[in-house]
């Protein structure tokens, strides 16, 4: 369990670095890159919720509510900016 959590942590940190690199190299953040950044944020959100918060063990209602809110935020930011 601890090893699994550690693997997830490395994935999360890797994804954070990918997001930061987009800024460090001053890439022009166009619409598709905004969607990409928010997509990465969504993956991180789901990893923390399902792995660290043990949401995978919870009733479907809580999984659905959390995923729905996360996806709505990603869609609003990713496709509206």
């Amino acid at each position: 369990m601890e090893k699994k959590n550690l693997s997830i942590l490395f994935i999360l940190i890797g994804l954070t670095l990918v997001m930061a690199l987009l800024d460090v190299f001053n890439l022009e953040i166009g619409n598709y890159l905004t969607s990409m950044v928010m997509g990465i944020a969504a993956v991180k959100f789901l990893l923390v919720a399902f792995a660290f918060m043990d949401l995978r063990k919870a009733h479907f209602f809580w999984k659905f509510a959390t995923v729905l809110i996360g996806l709505l935020i990603v869609l609003v930011v990713g496709f509206w900016v």
Partner: peptide
Amino acid sequence: WLFLFPSLYLIF
């Protein structure tokens, strides 16, 4: 924070 960080620091 996972949504605040990209929204404030990266996308605009």
